[in-house]
Design a protein around this nucleic acid. Structure first.
Lengths: 326, 326
DNA sequence: TCTATTAATGTAACCGGTTACACACAGTAT
DNA sequence: ATACTGTGTGTAACCGGTTACATTAATAGA
């Protein structure tokens, strides 16, 4: 590997001069600059970022911690984050925590040891006391961690209301909800949005709410149970799209016609909602935008820029498709 | 940040001794070891991996370059890679190249500057002459790059044959193929597998082959064209699952009943093949296993272990579902 | 003419682990 | 008593950029 000293020796200047050329700092005579640049080119010298990191205590690197990149929501997010940070010459460490706090902490430690400049994290479990020891900016994504930490999320409560109202408007009289895991904030918000709307019109019934795991199979089982116990259910709001797909699968198996006999709404707006038959009505989050906004915010924090807004909540949009057509 | 010197000072030993304790190297008296360990614990000292990297010229870090993490094939791969390497205390840089060679090279340069210990890359464009300047192990994933480079892939040719033969066995007499981009090796292999089988039984017709982009919309258009020009097509083998979904969507719009009038087979075995109606018959690749194998191989290369096999080809499996039911 | 000031460059310490080498001392073989 | 081996520890150079500080020359201002 060619080092700065090699370049300096070749040109006959000191390493300081080469460094100055490289960083456009201090005074360098135009002639010298050109010679140095030529030598750098010729010798194919690439500065060693590890050495630089060591001295500067920053690495042009960020960490992205998600529960599982396999969950269709996260690749979009990861892509957005990578696009924005890569543009600013940063590189992204990808970490899968499975939502387990030990893994999250292990990753945080590792990332700190590698001098990451900041971390974006999707977590339900981390508390301020875990995070206080890390001296780099942290932004929570999708799920707020703590009021002291900046976060980017979407309006889950309102989205759930929109979904539930839409089912009412479609003429549904018995609307069930398959909710996400209770320890996930957005699942609680969505549940609350549903509850408030059905209560408003006097349709609240706690037996029509079943929690599941944000996964197809688990939602399928939940839907089975619901539809078996209450065959007259005519609308189901699922806590996310993946679960809504499970609902449609279950309904199909039980001989329900969607949307004629049963209408289904999901949440997230993942791409695959469109491939199921019938296409899925859903509350769509601007996932890419959420990721890119969070990433841009993190870069600002890293550069020490003031943050205009510590908490950003994106609005969601109801996309009406076949699964709720009247 | 607590440094080794802080710990050394506190205990009253030299940094060398602390380092020996940390690395279990050289001689350290049992008493000393305990005192040092206690101080490390108490002071919450975490060794700085950047400093270590600088000296050791390796970073416990690898790069993973994929075209686009949004493509449903890659999250699984990424997850496998991260699982295996994380276990060995490595961290993964995620890079999205969009299949563009400039981006790929930019990432390679960046990764080299960060002293990555190795790279896993999915690419169609990189040539040995681009790669020769990088002095860390590289493994090609999914698509072989060059005979000199180790790679992990699956038997695309045979898989395509299986798919096509299956359509024949289902009684199809006019079988079309929507192929992937010509510059992608696996697309060429799949095309060839198809061609060879239809030729064998005298059904080859070049008009029944249309190239598309490994994407839903593009495949939808291709299927439209095929079915419009040749309404008696009764079987379509799509180059991947995403395209197969496009085919089913197109068939639906044109009023074809799948599988009664038209049978469809995909390739890849992505999870979402099961959510479409009818569920998709596909040639399934062991994606997770491919990723974990490649990662394990890379770790071996990094540790200087001999590689038993430079080229690993996984067998694929035909999963028969509703979309080809007779 | 003498002192500031700016331009241009070099020297060396620094970031924080790692390790070659030196040294000291114990125990053992000769 | 001498030489040798094994144990335990410290000193300082090293990895490769960065930058505070020093130095020198040249130009400007008094």
């Amino acid at each position: 590997m060619v080092t700065m000293r090699d370049v300096a020796k070749r040109v006959g200047v000191s390493v300081a001069t080469v460094s100055r050329v490289l960083n456009d700092s201090g005074y360098v005579k135009e002639d010298t600059r050109k010679t140095v640049l030529a030598a750098i080119e010729e010798m194919n010298f690439k500065p060693n970022s590890v050495a630089r990191s060591l001295f500067k205590k920053q690495s042009k690197t960020i960490g992205l911690i998600v529960p599982d990149i396999n969950n269709p929501f996260f690749p979009q997010l990861a892509r957005a984050v990578e696009d924005v940070t890569s543009e600013a010459d940063f590189t992204v460490f990808l970490c899968n925590s499975d939502g387990k706090i030990e893994k999250e902490i292990r990753y945080f430690d590792r990332l700190q040891q590698k001098y990451v400049d900041g971390v974006l994290v999707v977590s339900n479990t981390l508390k301020p006391e875990h995070l206080s020891q890390y001296h780099f900016p942290i932004i929570a994504l999708d799920r707020p961690l703590d009021s002291s930490l900046p976060y980017v999320t979407c309006n889950n409560y309102e989205g759930a209301q929109k979904a539930t109202r839409h089912l009412l408007e479609c003429g549904c009289g018995k609307i069930a909800h398959i909710s996400g895991p209770e320890n996930i904030a957005n699942a609680r918000d969505r549940l609350q949005g549903y509850k408030d709307v059905v209560s408003e019109v006097g349709l609240y019934d706690e037996n029509l709410i079943i929690p599941a795991e944000y996964q197809i199979e688990s939602a399928k089982r939940a839907a089975f149970k619901l539809l078996t116990n209450y065959p007259d259910i005519d609308g189901i709001f699922a806590g996310n799209d993946v679960m809504a797909i499970g609902v449609i699968k279950a309904a199909e198996l039980l001989g329900y016609k969607v949307p004629e006999q049963l209408k289904v709404v999901g949440f997230d707006g993942i791409e695959f909602g469109d491939i199921i038959t019938p296409e899925l009505t859903t509350v769509s989050q601007p996932v890419y935008q959420m990721g890119s906004t969070a990433a841009a915010m993190l870069l600002d924090l890293i550069e020490g820029k003031p943050i205009h807004q510590k908490e950003i909540t994106f609005q969601v949009e109801l996309l009406v498709k076949r699964s709720t057509q009247t």
